[in-house]
């Protein structure tokens, strides 16, 4: 788990009644809402209908040693995936991701989502995404009601992505995962990344942030309402993690 993620979760838990609120939300349908949506509009993945995807998924789950969550494919040209649920977790992956990414890259995406499950992020994620979806549906009213909570959850969510990235990196290796991030940035099937593009951009990006206070404020405001950190930041963090002792240990375990 990334320390920033662990600290953000601790800070969230310190909000009085927060865990109670999330638990009640899950109990009263937060989880079943998304499961219903999956069953209604997405295609559940089995060995028979998506053999290649299922094989990659099975390998990922086995490597991580977790119970197999349900896997769905949904219709979306963008490369994306998400995971929700606490007692009955599921992963949904976009058709764009399945068609654009190679098996190794797909494994990286699935390992990232499994990382969220391993770190129990789904507990808070489900509430966050419900609030964001409500905000989209009712044109910002929930933002007015729950503004600070949404911002706090978004802040945590950005850090939770770093933990999930660490998990994915441990499964597929740093270079392979850097390529996934580059593909996510470009969205092109024909693009053959070398795995260093985003990392090099990250150094330039840091120059902007560290160059001036105004630059720092600008970039922080840009991500304040986003659930994911900037892709180059993620590439930078993956690179740092790949130099760690624990990364090497986890790679030895997986390989």
């Amino acid at each position: 788990m990334h320390p920033a993620d662990a600290k953000a979760i601790l800070a969230l838990k310190k909000i009085p009644g927060f865990n109670y609120l999330v638990r009640k939300y899950m109990e009263y349908g937060g989880e079943s809402l998304y499961r219903g949506q999956n069953l209604a509009n997405h295609v559940k993945v089995y060995e028979d209908n998506f053999p290649a995807l299922y094989r990659v998924f099975k390998e990922t789950v086995t490597a991580l040693g977790i119970d197999e969550p349900e896997l769905y494919v949904y219709n979306d040209p963008y490369i994306n995936a998400y995971t929700y649920g606490e007692t009955r977790t599921f992963i949904a992956i976009s058709s764009g991701a399945v068609e654009t990414l190679s098996p190794d890259e797909l494994k990286g995406v699935l390992a990232h989502e499994c990382g969220h499950i391993v770190c129990h992020h789904t507990f808070y994620n489900t509430l966050l995404y419900s609030l964001v979806e409500l905000a989209d549906s009712f044109k910002g009213i929930p933002y007015m009601l729950f503004g600070p909570l949404v911002l706090a959850l978004q802040y945590w969510s950005r850090r939770s992505e770093l933990s999930a990235d660490r998990c994915a990196t441990s499964i597929v290796g740093a270079q392979a995962y850097q390529k996934v991030l580059a593909k996510l940035a470009s969205g092109m099937k024909s693009f053959k990344p070398n795995g260093k593009e985003l990392l090099n951009q990250a150094y330039e990006y840091h120059d902007i942030i560290e160059g001036s206070l105004w630059g720092k404020i600008q970039q922080n405001c840009q991500v304040a309402f986003q659930s994911h950190p900037q892709l180059c930041e993620r590439a930078y963090e993956v690179d740092r993690w790949s130099k760690s002792c624990r990364y090497r240990q986890s790679r030895i375990r997986v390989c």
């Binding site: 990334h2 320390p3 920033a4 740092r240 993690w241 130099k243 760690s244 002792c245 624990r246």
Partner: peptide
């Protein structure tokens, strides 16, 4: 724990 040296050295 978020220090580069920590990442490189911990725990071995």
């Amino acid at each position: 724990t978020d220090n580069d040296v920590y990442l490189r050295c911990y725990p071995d």
